[in-house]
Write a protein that binds this DNA or RNA. Structure first.
Lengths: 253, 253
DNA sequence: CATAAACCTTGACGCTGCGTAAAGGTCAAT
DNA sequence: ATTGACCTTTACGCAGCGTCAAGGTTTATG
């Protein structure tokens, strides 16, 4: 039996365009092209198409399918298992999203302002990624991989509740910063309370505290404009003052 | 505070290109464009970006986000709920895929030729479409659209189908059991997925689900040798492990 | 046997959400 | 004055096709 594009299309439920595209990318070539340039498919090709559609249903990329079906035993089982893992990961991610969306809906219906909610999702990832990207290598060298990974894990594992506590503390830090900066003295009572608050805030993500690390971070705040921008957003020269306060607090100055 | 593209990009973790694109599609316009054509963002825009990133994380399309954030109270809650439903559907689909992939892996490892598997997916669709293609026009003319559609519906709803789905799931349960038991921990991720699969399998025959009933059944598996034998046939101590996993899953332990 | 209907072909643009040059201005610092 | 780090616009590329457009082929019908 010989089939034209439309015949195959109807049999398999795909469009003619799809078949032409599969031909184009070399995923499914017709058995023959006749004198008028028509694509002619036979049983073998139809079977292969079924295979393709099966894997496509499984949401594999056409590229991956091509490899799997590449003649002579590409390791199908391994490929499938890898794909299985991808699907599992996808579902795990979906579960997280579902939880977040649900919480968001709840908070909306409860009339609670959305802000914290909205910031929550991007926050963790952002935090980790930025940390990794910018300081990852540096910090890993200084403190070892474990410390970093633990810190990331801890950050990811924060419960919503903890997170809220944390943002509350963050606000407190800002407030205190506003107050303390008025003294214009990083050794003042207010400034030292600020450093203390800042330490508490850090402890939500750090496993252990060291004065060195705390002081180091404070330096970073000024060196890195993102942090500078963050603190300066609330208080002019805020990052600088916070650094100085922490340096005094940690006995570095 | 005024921010250029790069500043905003670093603060938020997106690329400059992204910001320009968001400007281009009107999702996030800068507060101002200065004399040299530079985009200038302020706090308000940064906040909006946070919102955008939140929804983007939730896998909403930028188009949908634009609507949600369109000034003057687009119904956010409704939109969120609709989106929630989409995510739910997506997960349901993923679950099916997972089961199928797992079955495929199992059959491969069992040395059973893949053919039937591969053809299975397209089968239903093919059947209906062939019918349509061949006789559709004719029959529709003779008996009217409703008859045809009903017939198709019935074909789709075949008990045979259901049965095959169910055995498919059953295979998935066995496979997952094999995997999960390696963790030796009924609370492990794999074990909880097992319990979840088992629940799904049950739902083919149960009208309603309750944790109590589920847990009760799991106990029975171990108490009744027929069941024990069934699961142990595939996996040593399988029944026991399944019970434990289900007990954790249902919160009984 | 002419003609219309139904099929076939290639070519090319469009969709999403950007990444990634390319070619060229602007700004701060040396 | 030059360098380097920014900024700009323009435009192609990715996946997987849908959707015209312009034209050739086959088949059914009058």
């Amino acid at each position: 039996m010989e089939y034209t594009v439309q015949k195959v299309a109807q049999m398999s439920g795909v469009s003619g365009r799809t078949l032409r595209y599969y031909d184009q990318i070399g995923l499914l070539k017709p058995a023959e092209v006749n004198a008028s340039g028509y694509r002619i498919y036979r049983q073998k090709e139809v079977d292969r198409l079924q295979q393709i559609l099966f894997y496509r249903e499984m949401e594999m990329s056409l590229e991956a399918i091509k490899e799997i079906l590449s003649d002579r035993e590409f390791d199908e089982t391994t490929a499938l298992k890898e794909h299985y893992q991808k699907l599992i990961d996808k579902r795990a991610r979906l579960d997280t999203l579902l939880a977040t969306v649900q919480k968001t809906i709840a908070s909306k219906e409860g009339g609670i302002p959305m802000q914290d909610q909205a910031k929550f999702a991007g926050f963790k990832k952002k935090m980790i990624q930025e940390n990794e990207a910018k300081y990852g290598k540096e910090i890993r060298e200084k403190y070892g991989d474990e410390t970093v990974d633990q810190s990331n894990a801890k950050l990811m594992g924060l419960t919503q509740e903890k997170y809220e506590e944390m943002t509350e503390l963050e606000q407190a830090v800002i407030s205190q910063l506003k107050e303390a900066i008025k003294t214009d003295d990083p050794a003042s009572e207010a400034a030292q309370q600020l450093a203390e608050l800042h330490k508490k805030w850090l402890m939500y993500t750090w496993n252990s505290y060291s004065k060195e690390a705390h002081a180091g971070l404070a330096e970073m705040y000024v060196a890195d404009e993102r942090f500078t921008a963050y603190y300066d957003k609330y208080v002019e020269s805020g990052a600088e003052f916070l650094r100085d306060a922490v340096l005094v607090y940690t006995g570095r100055r």
